[in-house]
Simulated scan of single mutants.
Amino acid sequence: MLIKALIIDDERPARAELKKLLHDFPAIEIVGEAQNSKEAVEKINELDPDLIFLDIQMPGKNGFEMLSELVQTPKVIFTTAYDEYALKAFEVNALDYLQKPIESKRLEEAMRKLEQSQSSNKETRIDKNLLTDKDQFFVKDGEKCWFVKLADVRLFESAGNYAKVYFENQKPLILKSLNALEERLDERFFFRVNRKHIVNLKWIEKIEPYFNGGLLLELRDGEKVEVSRRQSVKFKEMMSL
């Protein structure tokens, strides 16, 4: 199975050198290139790559800022001449980090990691436009960055044009509205329980009757979320209650 890859780097020679090195890996299909963050976001949305090789330091928005604009994040291998970014890249759980000039041996190690990642995360998607609990996205909150698996997100909470993301002991804000998230999240995994919240169905521990015909959900972490009266009807049908 071919892995669709996009190379994002503002330097043409660097893109050409990486393409040359990737010729030794026939499973990688290079579907495009981008030389800045704006072009990268457009190409990612258009080409839907499985993997991106991403230079961190670019004119305008850097690689971390570019990732924070995406709703869904492909697998990422960072490529950069600046080793000071290495620790940060691994803090956000990137697939790998390659320092320029890229050595063929290090690229081979990265490809092995990619192969292991692919074999442990196979899924047949019904609709590629919808995000399931197998997908991940990038969160940047100040100096902190994470790749977050949607399976680990128990709750999204509306905060105007932003949404608060609840995972582990973190609650960072992302620049996406709850309505925009609802359009992209697969209802088999995520449900809009009221005007302010979307819940990960797999995190529900208890369901109780609540005021005025609604329901009260208790999540595995002990958090309680109300299901509105209107959404309770739909929720009961969906959950066969």
Rank of each mutant, 00 (worst) to 15 (best):
E208V: 01
F211D: 10
K38S: 12
A151K: 12
H23E: 13
F189W: 11
M1I: 10
E143A: 13
Y82P: 01
F235M: 03
K61W: 10
K206L: 09
V199G: 02
R112I: 14
S240M: 13
L22N: 04
E182V: 05
F138K: 01
S240R: 15
R15M: 07
L54T: 03
A5H: 01
M111A: 08
R106V: 02
L185R: 09
V41I: 11
V71A: 13
S119H: 13
L98T: 02
D152V: 08
E84V: 11
Q170T: 04
D55S: 00
R184I: 12
F53I: 06
M1R: 11
K234D: 13
N129Y: 06
F90S: 07
K75Y: 13
E182I: 01
D50R: 05
P172H: 08
K100A: 03
F189D: 10
G160V: 04
V153D: 03
D133C: 01
R12H: 13
K134M: 10
E187Q: 14
D96L: 02
Y85F: 15
R112C: 11
D221A: 05
N179S: 15
I28Q: 09
S158D: 04
F211I: 12
M58T: 00
V153E: 01
E108H: 12
L131D: 07
L150E: 07
A5T: 10
Y210R: 08
V92E: 02
V139Q: 00
F25Q: 02
I207W: 08
D10H: 09
K196N: 15
K196G: 15
L216R: 14
N62I: 08
K38C: 07
R15C: 08
K144D: 08
K171T: 14
Q231W: 04
L185K: 10
F211V: 13
E69Y: 06
M58E: 05
Q170Y: 12
D48L: 14
K122S: 12
Q116R: 14
F147P: 04
G213S: 03
K234R: 14
A27N: 12
K20V: 09
G60F: 01
V31E: 03
G222K: 06
D221T: 11
K61R: 11
D9A: 02
E208K: 14
K144W: 00
D50Q: 10
I207N: 03
Q118H: 11
K88F: 05
I7E: 06
Y166I: 01
W203Q: 14
I3Q: 09
I207V: 14
L2N: 13
E46K: 13
T132A: 03
N45I: 00
E42S: 09
Y162V: 02
A89G: 14
L67A: 05
I52D: 08
G160W: 06
F78L: 06
K75T: 04
D135W: 03
A159P: 04
E205V: 05
F190Q: 05
Q118G: 05
F189I: 02
Y82H: 11
E237Y: 07
R12M: 15
I77Y: 05
R230I: 00
N212S: 15
Y162G: 08
F167W: 10
K134I: 00
R15Y: 07
I8K: 04
E157T: 13
R184E: 14
K43Y: 04
R15L: 03
P172I: 09
F53N: 05
K19D: 02
W146L: 05
